[in-house]
Amino acid sequence: MNTTKQVGIDLGSRFVKMALFGGETTQFLRYDTVDFYKRYIIRRPDGISIDTERLGIPEDCAVTATGYGRNLMSFGNASVISEIKAHFRGALRASGKTDFILVDIGGQDSKVIWARDGYIEDFVMNDKCAASTGRFAENASSALGFTLEELGNMKENPADLSTTCAVFCESEIISLMASGTEPERIGAGINMSIAKRLAPLVKSYSAPYIFASGGAAENEAMLWFLSRLVDKEIHPVPEPQFNGALGCLNL
């Protein structure tokens, strides 16, 4: 029997993340975004919606959505909140702190949220550039032939990457490899360049704690560089990838 009482869905640019709350425990599911839209979208003459039945979401279950596809959630029990609010609530709940900075590094957006006295005081997001996002790490690791997990351990002697562009970076990686630079050093350079992009956003605010969420928060080396640049410890939230989905739940 399906005991799901509440569902939080974060429809991100790379992955759709779901947190299914059953009363005592929470189950997490993750889908590739493109696969998700191919499999679970229903096209009707009056628009499109999500096939909740196929996803196993019970009819009387409260659903809250965030992310790029949030407005697909236009059925009976569904409500929509912004990504900033979802991630803020996720971190607030997970940390129990009311004053913090949250760095969320998503597939194509990175955001820094400043929470004060338990409210969102301000936030800032990346400009029109993917060089500080998870997608950049993904492309770079694949160009280097590493998994994201492997990339997340590379912090020794980082190679200097001069390009500002996530797309052109690939050709820079190739030319560094052709000139004999060790791939691990290039990997470390990638992590450092993401951290360098994020540091000015984090430094716009000041708070006693800094937390990190999003897929790239699992990249330890990048967080290590970032914490050195902002001169403060950075703690990943317990379920970095599902922070937005968890923040959608009304617990």
Binding site: G67, S82, E83, I84, K85, Y119, F123
Partner: peptide, 17 residues
């Protein structure tokens, strides 16, 4: 979509403030 997501979040923040 990127701009919409930013505006949505901003308005929501102002509402809760």
């Amino acid at each position: 979509g990127r701009t919409k997501i930013r505006i949505d979040s901003f308005i929501e923040m102002l509402e809760s403030k």
